[in-house]
Simulated assay, not measured.
Amino acid sequence: MGWVSTDNEHEGWAACVAPDGRLSSSYSGEGMLVEGVTGRYERDKVMSDHEVVPDVEMIGWRGACTCGWQGELWKRVMSPADADFSHRRDYVSLDGFADASQEVEDAIHEEWKTHIAPSEAILGLEAAAREHAQAGQRLDKTVAAAKAAGASWADIGRAVGISRQSAHERWAEKQ
């Protein structure tokens, strides 16, 4: 596979695309493995619910994620002269493996990172909320300790940037 999100909920990769649109999940010595059986290709010997599509037949690449997300198609062109990165076209020789070039894989990785950005941001938000709650508990305990040590509400309010009255209203019942 390729990349894993911080929460381990998303795993993405640059998948080869078969002529019928199915995405590769892995590969074997004979070609790319795609889930499903159409009868057009030979079944994989190990995963019988997958077919082996020859590398030469792969039409391009797209981002894929375990959550079901798919990126836009990067088309495989038949000659280097037809390659145009700005139009999502790249040349990979028909002689070897159909894996995306490093440049296309990097672009797909960036697309996948955009896909997971909301969940990554939520993780940051959850962490900040936990830290905020912990800081609040620490502040409450420290205020109680200061009050027990003889500090006035005016001193406590001044230390935390609020008025004496606000400090009293916030912490007096917690004593």
Results as ranks from 00 to 15, higher is better:
Trp3Leu: 08
Trp3Thr: 04
Val4Tyr: 03
Ser5Lys: 00
Asp7Thr: 12
His10Phe: 08
Gly12Ala: 08
Ala14Asp: 05
Ala15Lys: 05
Asp20Met: 11
Asp20Arg: 13
Ser24Asn: 10
Ser25Lys: 07
Ser26Ile: 01
Ser26Pro: 01
Ser26Glu: 02
Tyr27Met: 13
Ser28His: 04
Glu30Lys: 15
Glu30His: 13
Leu33Cys: 04
Leu33Trp: 02
Val34His: 06
Glu35Leu: 11
Gly36Phe: 05
Thr38Val: 06
Asp44Tyr: 05
Val46Leu: 15
Met47Gly: 01
Ser48Tyr: 07
Glu51Ala: 01
Asp55Cys: 09
Ile59Ser: 02
Ile59Trp: 01
Gly60Thr: 08
Trp61Glu: 06
Arg62Lys: 12
Ala64Gln: 08
Gly68His: 11
Gln70Cys: 08
Trp74Cys: 01
Lys75Arg: 13
Val77Ala: 08
Ser79Gln: 07
Pro80Asp: 13
Ala81Asp: 11
Ala81Phe: 04
His87Thr: 06
Arg88Ile: 00
Arg89Val: 07
Arg89His: 09
Ser93Ile: 09
Phe97Trp: 15
Ala98Cys: 15
Ala98Ser: 15
Ala100Val: 01
Glu103Thr: 11
Glu105Trp: 09
Asp106Ala: 13
His109Glu: 14
Glu111Lys: 00
Trp112Lys: 03
Thr114Tyr: 10
His115Trp: 11
Ala117Met: 11
Ser119Pro: 00
Leu123Met: 14
Leu123Pro: 00
Gly124Met: 06
Gly124Thr: 05
Leu125His: 10
Leu125Met: 10
Glu126Cys: 03
Glu131His: 03
His132Thr: 09
Gln134Tyr: 04
Ala135Leu: 12
Gly136Glu: 14
Leu139Thr: 12
Asp140Ser: 08
Thr142Trp: 10
Thr142Tyr: 09
Lys147Arg: 15
Ala148Val: 06
Gly150Met: 08
Trp153Met: 02
Ala154Trp: 02
Asp155Arg: 14
Asp155Asn: 11
Gly161Ser: 10
Ser163Glu: 06
Arg164Asn: 07
His168Asp: 08
Arg170Gln: 14
Arg170Ile: 02
Ala172Asn: 11
